[in-house]
Design a protein around this nucleic acid. Structure first.
Lengths: 207, 207
DNA sequence: GTCTTTATTACCCTTTAGGGTAGTTTTTAG
DNA sequence: CTAAAAACTACCCTAAAGGGTAATAAAGAC
Protein backbone atom coordinates (compact mmCIF):
# COMPACT_ATOMS: atom_id res chain seq x y z
CA UNK A 1 0.00 0.00 0.00
CA UNK A 2 1.39 3.36 -1.03
CA UNK A 3 0.87 6.40 1.12
CA UNK A 4 -1.55 8.92 -0.36
CA UNK A 5 -0.97 12.41 0.96
CA UNK A 6 -4.05 14.60 0.87
CA UNK A 7 -4.22 18.38 1.07
CA UNK A 8 -7.50 19.68 2.50
CA UNK A 9 -8.63 23.13 1.41
CA UNK A 10 -11.70 24.10 3.42
CA UNK A 11 -12.45 27.36 5.19
CA UNK A 12 -14.75 25.86 7.78
CA UNK A 13 -12.43 24.28 10.36
CA UNK A 14 -15.05 21.88 11.69
CA UNK A 15 -15.73 20.35 8.31
CA UNK A 16 -12.02 20.27 7.53
CA UNK A 17 -11.43 18.33 10.74
CA UNK A 18 -14.26 15.93 9.91
CA UNK A 19 -12.68 15.19 6.57
CA UNK A 20 -9.24 14.83 8.03
CA UNK A 21 -10.48 12.31 10.57
CA UNK A 22 -12.41 10.36 7.96
CA UNK A 23 -9.39 10.31 5.67
CA UNK A 24 -7.04 9.10 8.37
CA UNK A 25 -9.52 6.38 9.29
CA UNK A 26 -9.34 5.25 5.68
CA UNK A 27 -5.55 5.03 5.56
CA UNK A 28 -4.92 8.34 3.88
CA UNK A 29 -2.36 10.82 5.16
CA UNK A 30 -3.30 14.47 5.57
CA UNK A 31 -0.39 16.58 4.36
CA UNK A 32 -2.00 19.82 5.54
CA UNK A 33 -5.26 21.65 6.16
CA UNK A 34 -5.46 25.17 4.79
CA UNK A 35 -8.22 27.75 4.88
CA UNK A 36 -7.39 30.10 2.03
CA UNK A 37 -6.33 30.19 -1.58
CA UNK A 38 -2.93 31.67 -0.80
CA UNK A 39 -2.13 29.04 1.77
CA UNK A 40 -3.28 26.36 -0.65
CA UNK A 41 -0.96 27.60 -3.38
CA UNK A 42 1.92 27.78 -0.92
CA UNK A 43 1.27 24.20 0.18
CA UNK A 44 1.13 22.99 -3.41
CA UNK A 45 4.49 24.53 -4.04
CA UNK A 46 6.31 23.65 -0.84
CA UNK A 47 4.70 20.45 0.33
CA UNK A 48 2.98 18.94 -2.69
CA UNK A 49 0.31 16.31 -1.88
CA UNK A 50 -0.84 13.44 -4.05
CA UNK A 51 -4.44 14.60 -4.05
CA UNK A 52 -6.38 17.73 -3.12
CA UNK A 53 -9.77 18.00 -1.49
CA UNK A 54 -11.08 21.38 -2.54
CA UNK A 55 -14.05 23.29 -1.19
CA UNK A 56 -15.59 25.12 -4.13
CA UNK A 57 -16.94 28.00 -2.10
CA UNK A 58 -13.97 29.41 -0.29
CA UNK A 59 -14.53 32.69 1.51
CA UNK A 60 -17.88 33.21 -0.11
CA UNK A 61 -16.47 33.27 -3.63
CA UNK A 62 -15.35 30.64 -6.09
CA UNK A 63 -11.74 30.60 -4.98
CA UNK A 64 -11.76 26.82 -5.05
CA UNK A 65 -12.18 26.95 -8.81
CA UNK A 66 -9.26 29.33 -9.14
CA UNK A 67 -7.10 26.92 -7.20
CA UNK A 68 -8.29 24.13 -9.47
CA UNK A 69 -7.17 26.07 -12.51
CA UNK A 70 -3.72 26.53 -11.02
CA UNK A 71 -3.54 22.81 -10.28
CA UNK A 72 -4.43 22.03 -13.88
CA UNK A 73 -1.91 24.46 -15.26
CA UNK A 74 1.05 23.97 -13.01
CA UNK A 75 0.65 20.67 -11.24
CA UNK A 76 -0.38 17.31 -12.51
CA UNK A 77 -2.51 16.35 -9.53
CA UNK A 78 -6.01 14.96 -9.05
CA UNK A 79 -8.48 16.94 -6.99
CA UNK A 80 -11.99 16.36 -5.70
CA UNK A 81 -14.42 19.15 -5.05
CA UNK A 82 -16.31 19.56 -1.83
CA UNK A 83 -19.73 20.82 -2.73
CA UNK A 84 -23.05 21.46 -1.04
CA UNK A 85 -25.03 21.78 -4.27
CA UNK A 86 -25.20 25.53 -4.02
CA UNK A 87 -25.85 27.28 -7.30
CA UNK A 88 -25.81 25.70 -10.72
CA UNK A 89 -23.57 28.27 -12.31
CA UNK A 90 -20.79 27.44 -9.90
CA UNK A 91 -21.19 23.78 -10.67
CA UNK A 92 -20.82 24.45 -14.38
CA UNK A 93 -17.63 26.36 -13.74
CA UNK A 94 -16.42 23.55 -11.54
CA UNK A 95 -17.13 20.90 -14.15
CA UNK A 96 -15.03 22.71 -16.71
CA UNK A 97 -11.95 22.27 -14.53
CA UNK A 98 -12.19 18.50 -14.94
CA UNK A 99 -12.22 17.43 -11.31
CA UNK A 100 -11.45 13.81 -10.47
CA UNK A 101 -14.64 13.71 -8.41
CA UNK A 102 -17.12 15.42 -6.12
CA UNK A 103 -17.80 15.00 -2.45
CA UNK A 104 -21.28 16.18 -1.56
CA UNK A 105 -21.93 17.62 1.88
CA UNK A 106 -23.00 16.12 4.12
CA UNK A 107 -20.75 13.23 3.18
CA UNK A 108 -20.58 9.70 4.49
CA UNK A 109 -17.36 7.95 5.35
CA UNK A 110 -17.99 5.41 2.62
CA UNK A 111 -18.85 8.07 0.07
CA UNK A 112 -15.68 9.99 0.81
CA UNK A 113 -13.59 6.89 0.59
CA UNK A 114 -15.13 5.88 -2.73
CA UNK A 115 -14.58 9.30 -4.26
CA UNK A 116 -10.96 9.33 -3.17
CA UNK A 117 -10.25 5.85 -4.44
CA UNK A 118 -11.76 6.63 -7.81
CA UNK A 119 -9.79 9.84 -8.03
CA UNK A 120 -6.51 8.09 -7.29
CA UNK A 121 -7.29 5.28 -9.72
CA UNK A 122 -8.29 7.57 -12.56
CA UNK A 123 -5.24 9.67 -12.06
CA UNK A 124 -3.03 6.60 -12.24
CA UNK A 125 -4.71 5.74 -15.53
CA UNK A 126 -4.06 9.21 -16.86
CA UNK A 127 -0.45 8.95 -15.77
CA UNK A 128 0.02 5.95 -17.97
CA UNK A 129 -0.86 8.03 -20.99
CA UNK A 130 1.98 10.44 -20.28
CA UNK A 131 5.32 9.79 -21.90
CA UNK A 132 4.38 6.42 -23.36
CA UNK A 133 7.00 3.96 -24.49
CA UNK A 134 8.33 4.32 -28.01
CA UNK A 135 6.49 2.14 -30.48
CA UNK A 136 8.08 1.10 -33.75
CA UNK A 137 4.79 0.88 -35.62
CA UNK A 138 3.75 4.37 -34.65
CA UNK A 139 7.15 5.76 -35.57
CA UNK A 140 7.59 3.85 -38.80
CA UNK A 141 4.30 4.87 -40.29
CA UNK A 142 5.60 8.41 -40.44
CA UNK A 143 8.86 7.44 -42.09
CA UNK A 144 9.51 6.97 -45.81
CA UNK A 145 12.21 4.47 -44.93
CA UNK A 146 11.28 2.57 -41.76
CA UNK A 147 13.67 1.72 -38.95
CA UNK A 148 14.92 -1.85 -38.83
CA UNK A 149 14.44 -3.81 -35.62
CA UNK A 150 18.02 -3.30 -34.62
CA UNK A 151 17.87 0.38 -35.33
CA UNK A 152 14.74 0.65 -33.24
CA UNK A 153 16.55 -1.11 -30.42
CA UNK A 154 19.31 1.46 -30.61
CA UNK A 155 16.74 4.25 -30.74
CA UNK A 156 15.15 3.05 -27.53
CA UNK A 157 18.48 3.06 -25.73
CA UNK A 158 19.28 6.55 -26.97
CA UNK A 159 15.83 7.62 -25.86
CA UNK A 160 16.63 6.34 -22.40
CA UNK A 161 19.78 8.38 -22.19
CA UNK A 162 22.44 5.77 -22.93
CA UNK A 163 25.81 6.69 -24.43
CA UNK A 164 27.20 4.95 -27.50
CA UNK A 165 29.47 2.91 -25.27
CA UNK A 166 26.63 1.79 -23.05
CA UNK A 167 24.57 0.88 -26.09
CA UNK A 168 27.43 -1.20 -27.45
CA UNK A 169 27.69 -3.06 -24.16
CA UNK A 170 23.95 -3.56 -23.87
CA UNK A 171 23.66 -5.02 -27.36
CA UNK A 172 27.01 -6.89 -27.31
CA UNK A 173 28.22 -5.14 -30.43
CA UNK A 174 31.11 -2.87 -31.29
CA UNK A 175 30.82 0.85 -30.71
CA UNK A 176 31.59 1.26 -34.39
CA UNK A 177 28.47 -0.67 -35.21
CA UNK A 178 26.48 1.50 -32.87
CA UNK A 179 27.78 4.56 -34.64
CA UNK A 180 26.88 3.09 -38.00
CA UNK A 181 23.35 2.40 -36.85
CA UNK A 182 22.99 5.89 -35.42
CA UNK A 183 24.23 7.36 -38.67
CA UNK A 184 21.44 5.53 -40.50
CA UNK A 185 18.89 6.42 -37.86
CA UNK A 186 19.79 10.08 -38.15
CA UNK A 187 19.27 9.92 -41.87
CA UNK A 188 15.92 8.19 -41.62
CA UNK A 189 14.66 10.56 -38.97
CA UNK A 190 16.30 13.66 -40.36
CA UNK A 191 18.20 14.36 -37.16
CA UNK A 192 21.81 15.29 -36.56
CA UNK A 193 22.19 14.72 -32.84
CA UNK A 194 20.73 12.61 -30.06
CA UNK A 195 18.66 15.40 -28.64
CA UNK A 196 17.08 16.44 -31.92
CA UNK A 197 16.45 12.76 -32.52
CA UNK A 198 14.64 12.44 -29.20
CA UNK A 199 12.59 15.56 -29.88
CA UNK A 200 11.60 14.16 -33.25
CA UNK A 201 10.64 10.83 -31.75
CA UNK A 202 8.30 12.59 -29.34
CA UNK A 203 6.70 14.40 -32.22
CA UNK A 204 6.25 11.27 -34.28
CA UNK A 205 4.73 9.48 -31.32
CA UNK A 206 2.04 12.13 -30.85
CA UNK A 207 0.86 12.45 -34.44
CA UNK B 1 -10.88 21.84 -41.43
CA UNK B 2 -8.47 18.93 -41.24
CA UNK B 3 -9.04 15.81 -43.24
CA UNK B 4 -10.06 12.82 -41.13
CA UNK B 5 -9.27 9.53 -42.81
CA UNK B 6 -11.49 6.69 -41.70
CA UNK B 7 -10.88 2.97 -42.07
CA UNK B 8 -14.06 0.90 -42.22
CA UNK B 9 -13.88 -2.70 -41.02
CA UNK B 10 -17.18 -4.40 -41.78
CA UNK B 11 -17.78 -7.80 -43.35
CA UNK B 12 -21.19 -6.95 -44.77
CA UNK B 13 -20.44 -4.93 -47.93
CA UNK B 14 -23.85 -3.25 -48.01
CA UNK B 15 -23.49 -1.82 -44.52
CA UNK B 16 -19.92 -0.87 -45.21
CA UNK B 17 -21.06 1.08 -48.26
CA UNK B 18 -23.80 2.77 -46.26
CA UNK B 19 -21.29 3.93 -43.73
CA UNK B 20 -18.85 5.06 -46.34
CA UNK B 21 -21.50 7.15 -48.05
CA UNK B 22 -22.66 8.66 -44.79
CA UNK B 23 -19.09 9.49 -43.81
CA UNK B 24 -18.30 11.13 -47.11
CA UNK B 25 -21.49 13.17 -46.84
CA UNK B 26 -20.19 14.39 -43.51
CA UNK B 27 -16.82 15.52 -44.83
CA UNK B 28 -14.85 12.49 -43.72
CA UNK B 29 -12.50 10.64 -46.04
CA UNK B 30 -12.66 6.87 -46.31
CA UNK B 31 -9.12 5.52 -46.43
CA UNK B 32 -10.28 1.96 -47.13
CA UNK B 33 -13.02 -0.58 -46.60
CA UNK B 34 -11.89 -4.02 -45.48
CA UNK B 35 -13.79 -7.18 -44.69
CA UNK B 36 -11.42 -9.20 -42.52
CA UNK B 37 -9.06 -8.93 -39.61
CA UNK B 38 -6.00 -9.60 -41.71
CA UNK B 39 -6.86 -6.91 -44.21
CA UNK B 40 -7.59 -4.52 -41.36
CA UNK B 41 -4.17 -5.11 -39.81
CA UNK B 42 -2.50 -4.68 -43.17
CA UNK B 43 -4.31 -1.38 -43.72
CA UNK B 44 -3.34 -0.16 -40.26
CA UNK B 45 0.26 -0.85 -41.08
CA UNK B 46 0.46 0.34 -44.66
CA UNK B 47 -2.14 3.07 -44.93
CA UNK B 48 -2.89 4.19 -41.41
CA UNK B 49 -6.16 6.09 -40.93
CA UNK B 50 -7.01 8.69 -38.30
CA UNK B 51 -9.97 6.72 -37.01
CA UNK B 52 -11.35 3.21 -37.34
CA UNK B 53 -14.95 2.10 -37.58
CA UNK B 54 -14.96 -1.46 -36.34
CA UNK B 55 -17.69 -4.05 -36.60
CA UNK B 56 -17.52 -6.09 -33.41
CA UNK B 57 -18.87 -9.28 -34.95
CA UNK B 58 -16.60 -9.99 -37.85
CA UNK B 59 -17.02 -13.37 -39.51
CA UNK B 60 -19.30 -14.62 -36.77
CA UNK B 61 -16.65 -14.26 -34.07
CA UNK B 62 -15.30 -11.38 -32.05
CA UNK B 63 -12.52 -10.51 -34.45
CA UNK B 64 -13.36 -6.85 -34.12
CA UNK B 65 -12.28 -6.96 -30.52
CA UNK B 66 -9.00 -8.58 -31.46
CA UNK B 67 -8.36 -5.79 -33.91
CA UNK B 68 -9.19 -3.30 -31.18
CA UNK B 69 -6.58 -4.85 -28.92
CA UNK B 70 -3.95 -4.52 -31.62
CA UNK B 71 -4.91 -0.89 -32.14
CA UNK B 72 -4.52 -0.25 -28.43
CA UNK B 73 -1.17 -1.97 -28.24
CA UNK B 74 0.51 -0.87 -31.42
CA UNK B 75 -1.28 2.20 -32.68
CA UNK B 76 -2.50 5.25 -30.92
CA UNK B 77 -5.77 5.61 -32.81
CA UNK B 78 -9.38 6.14 -31.82
CA UNK B 79 -11.94 3.57 -32.92
CA UNK B 80 -15.70 3.30 -32.77
CA UNK B 81 -17.50 0.00 -32.62
CA UNK B 82 -20.32 -0.93 -34.89
CA UNK B 83 -22.75 -2.96 -32.86
CA UNK B 84 -26.22 -4.40 -33.21
CA UNK B 85 -26.70 -5.09 -29.52
CA UNK B 86 -26.09 -8.75 -29.92
CA UNK B 87 -25.00 -10.51 -26.74
CA UNK B 88 -24.04 -8.87 -23.50
CA UNK B 89 -20.82 -10.82 -23.04
CA UNK B 90 -19.45 -9.42 -26.27
CA UNK B 91 -20.35 -5.93 -25.18
CA UNK B 92 -18.45 -6.41 -21.94
CA UNK B 93 -15.41 -7.55 -23.86
CA UNK B 94 -15.79 -4.59 -26.14
CA UNK B 95 -16.04 -2.10 -23.30
CA UNK B 96 -12.76 -3.32 -21.86
CA UNK B 97 -10.95 -2.22 -25.00
CA UNK B 98 -11.86 1.40 -24.29
CA UNK B 99 -13.53 2.35 -27.56
CA UNK B 100 -13.97 6.02 -28.38
CA UNK B 101 -17.64 5.33 -29.07
CA UNK B 102 -20.34 3.02 -30.37
CA UNK B 103 -22.45 3.17 -33.47
CA UNK B 104 -25.62 1.18 -33.06
CA UNK B 105 -27.19 -0.45 -36.07
CA UNK B 106 -29.36 0.71 -37.65
CA UNK B 107 -27.63 4.06 -37.44
CA UNK B 108 -28.80 7.49 -38.47
CA UNK B 109 -26.65 9.94 -40.35
CA UNK B 110 -26.74 12.32 -37.42
CA UNK B 111 -25.92 9.58 -34.91
CA UNK B 112 -22.94 8.45 -36.93
CA UNK B 113 -21.68 11.97 -37.31
CA UNK B 114 -22.02 12.67 -33.59
CA UNK B 115 -20.18 9.50 -32.64
CA UNK B 116 -17.34 10.31 -35.00
CA UNK B 117 -17.02 13.89 -33.86
CA UNK B 118 -16.90 12.84 -30.24
CA UNK B 119 -14.33 10.20 -31.00
CA UNK B 120 -12.08 12.65 -32.80
CA UNK B 121 -12.48 15.24 -30.06
CA UNK B 122 -11.77 12.85 -27.22
CA UNK B 123 -8.74 11.55 -28.98
CA UNK B 124 -7.40 15.05 -29.41
CA UNK B 125 -7.87 15.55 -25.68
CA UNK B 126 -5.99 12.36 -24.93
CA UNK B 127 -3.23 13.43 -27.27
CA UNK B 128 -2.64 16.51 -25.19
CA UNK B 129 -1.85 14.33 -22.21
CA UNK B 130 0.92 12.58 -24.10
CA UNK B 131 4.33 14.22 -23.98
CA UNK B 132 3.17 17.31 -22.12
CA UNK B 133 5.28 20.44 -21.97
CA UNK B 134 7.93 20.62 -19.30
CA UNK B 135 6.75 22.42 -16.19
CA UNK B 136 9.17 24.01 -13.77
CA UNK B 137 6.96 23.50 -10.74
CA UNK B 138 6.53 19.82 -11.39
CA UNK B 139 10.25 19.38 -11.97
CA UNK B 140 11.43 21.52 -9.09
CA UNK B 141 9.36 19.80 -6.47
CA UNK B 142 11.47 16.70 -7.03
CA UNK B 143 14.76 18.55 -6.77
CA UNK B 144 16.68 19.36 -3.58
CA UNK B 145 18.09 22.41 -5.34
CA UNK B 146 15.55 23.84 -7.78
CA UNK B 147 16.33 25.12 -11.24
CA UNK B 148 16.47 28.89 -11.66
CA UNK B 149 14.29 30.48 -14.31
CA UNK B 150 17.18 30.85 -16.66
CA UNK B 151 18.26 27.29 -16.16
CA UNK B 152 14.74 26.11 -16.85
CA UNK B 153 14.77 28.11 -20.06
CA UNK B 154 17.93 26.34 -21.12
CA UNK B 155 16.42 23.00 -20.12
CA UNK B 156 13.43 23.58 -22.36
CA UNK B 157 15.64 24.32 -25.32
CA UNK B 158 17.74 21.23 -24.71
CA UNK B 159 14.52 19.25 -24.41
CA UNK B 160 13.54 20.49 -27.82
CA UNK B 161 16.76 19.32 -29.38
CA UNK B 162 18.70 22.57 -29.62
CA UNK B 163 22.50 22.61 -29.66
CA UNK B 164 24.52 24.81 -27.32
CA UNK B 165 25.09 27.25 -30.15
CA UNK B 166 21.42 27.48 -30.98
CA UNK B 167 20.60 27.99 -27.32
CA UNK B 168 23.15 30.80 -27.10
CA UNK B 169 21.57 32.49 -30.11
CA UNK B 170 18.03 32.01 -28.86
CA UNK B 171 18.83 33.53 -25.48
CA UNK B 172 21.26 36.16 -26.77
CA UNK B 173 24.03 34.97 -24.49
CA UNK B 174 27.50 33.53 -24.98
CA UNK B 175 27.94 29.83 -25.61
CA UNK B 176 30.20 29.83 -22.56
CA UNK B 177 27.30 30.96 -20.45
CA UNK B 178 25.14 28.24 -21.92
CA UNK B 179 27.77 25.69 -20.99
CA UNK B 180 27.97 27.07 -17.46
CA UNK B 181 24.21 26.77 -17.07
CA UNK B 182 24.21 23.26 -18.42
CA UNK B 183 26.96 22.31 -16.01
CA UNK B 184 24.77 23.49 -13.12
CA UNK B 185 21.69 21.83 -14.58
CA UNK B 186 23.54 18.54 -14.87
CA UNK B 187 24.51 18.77 -11.23
CA UNK B 188 21.03 19.59 -10.05
CA UNK B 189 19.46 16.84 -12.10
CA UNK B 190 22.23 14.32 -11.66
CA UNK B 191 22.83 13.96 -15.38
CA UNK B 192 26.00 13.95 -17.43
CA UNK B 193 24.71 14.40 -20.94
CA UNK B 194 21.79 15.93 -22.79
CA UNK B 195 20.12 12.62 -23.43
CA UNK B 196 20.30 11.39 -19.84
CA UNK B 197 19.04 14.82 -18.83
CA UNK B 198 16.05 14.48 -21.14
CA UNK B 199 15.31 10.99 -19.87
CA UNK B 200 15.40 12.25 -16.31
CA UNK B 201 13.11 15.15 -17.13
CA UNK B 202 10.55 12.71 -18.50
CA UNK B 203 10.74 10.72 -15.32
CA UNK B 204 10.35 13.75 -13.09
CA UNK B 205 7.38 14.92 -15.11
CA UNK B 206 5.49 11.68 -14.63
CA UNK B 207 5.90 11.28 -10.90
C1' DG C 1 24.62 48.48 2.58
C1' DT C 2 26.37 44.04 2.59
C1' DC C 3 25.74 39.19 1.69
C1' DT C 4 24.02 35.64 -1.32
C1' DT C 5 22.28 33.90 -5.36
C1' DT C 6 22.00 34.01 -10.19
C1' DA C 7 23.74 35.25 -14.47
C1' DT C 8 27.35 36.12 -17.23
C1' DT C 9 31.79 35.28 -19.60
C1' DA C 10 36.48 33.25 -20.59
C1' DC C 11 40.02 29.63 -21.17
C1' DC C 12 41.65 25.04 -21.20
C1' DC C 13 41.36 20.30 -21.81
C1' DT C 14 39.11 15.56 -22.37
C1' DT C 15 35.56 12.83 -23.91
C1' DT C 16 31.72 11.83 -26.79
C1' DA C 17 29.30 12.23 -30.77
C1' DG C 18 28.79 12.64 -35.64
C1' DG C 19 29.96 12.03 -40.61
C1' DG C 20 32.60 9.85 -44.60
C1' DT C 21 34.25 5.70 -46.69
C1' DA C 22 34.77 0.90 -47.11
C1' DG C 23 34.60 -3.71 -46.20
C1' DT C 24 32.70 -8.50 -44.55
C1' DT C 25 29.08 -11.45 -42.81
C1' DT C 26 24.26 -12.75 -42.00
C1' DT C 27 19.52 -12.84 -43.02
C1' DT C 28 15.79 -12.65 -45.73
C1' DA C 29 12.96 -12.54 -49.82
C1' DG C 30 11.90 -13.91 -54.49
C1' DC D 1 20.00 -20.47 -55.23
C1' DT D 2 20.89 -15.77 -55.82
C1' DA D 3 20.15 -10.92 -55.07
C1' DA D 4 19.12 -7.48 -51.76
C1' DA D 5 18.79 -5.76 -47.31
C1' DA D 6 20.39 -5.54 -42.77
C1' DA D 7 23.96 -6.07 -39.48
C1' DC D 8 28.44 -5.67 -38.27
C1' DT D 9 33.18 -3.78 -38.07
C1' DA D 10 37.24 -0.59 -38.77
C1' DC D 11 39.63 3.84 -39.43
C1' DC D 12 39.92 8.70 -39.86
C1' DC D 13 38.72 13.23 -38.96
C1' DT D 14 35.80 17.18 -37.32
C1' DA D 15 32.50 19.14 -34.38
C1' DA D 16 30.04 19.26 -30.20
C1' DA D 17 29.54 18.44 -25.58
C1' DG D 18 31.13 18.17 -20.96
C1' DG D 19 34.01 19.32 -16.85
C1' DG D 20 37.36 22.28 -14.09
C1' DT D 21 38.57 26.82 -12.55
C1' DA D 22 37.94 31.57 -12.04
C1' DA D 23 36.26 36.06 -12.29
C1' DT D 24 32.81 40.04 -12.89
C1' DA D 25 28.12 41.99 -12.93
C1' DA D 26 23.41 42.22 -11.50
C1' DA D 27 19.51 41.28 -8.68
C1' DG D 28 17.30 40.16 -4.34
C1' DA D 29 17.24 39.30 0.58
C1' DC D 30 17.98 40.83 5.23
Amino acid sequence: MIEVRVLIVEDEPLIAEDIATALINNDFTVSAIVYSKDDALAELKNNPPDLVVLDINLNGGEEGIEIAKVINEKYFLPFVYLTSYSDKLTLIHAKNTEPAGYIVKPFSDAGLFAAMEIAVYNHAQKSKLRFPELNDDVINRHLPSPLSEREFGVVQLIYNGKTNNQIAEDLFISINTVKAHIKNIHQKLDADSRSTLIARLRKLMTN
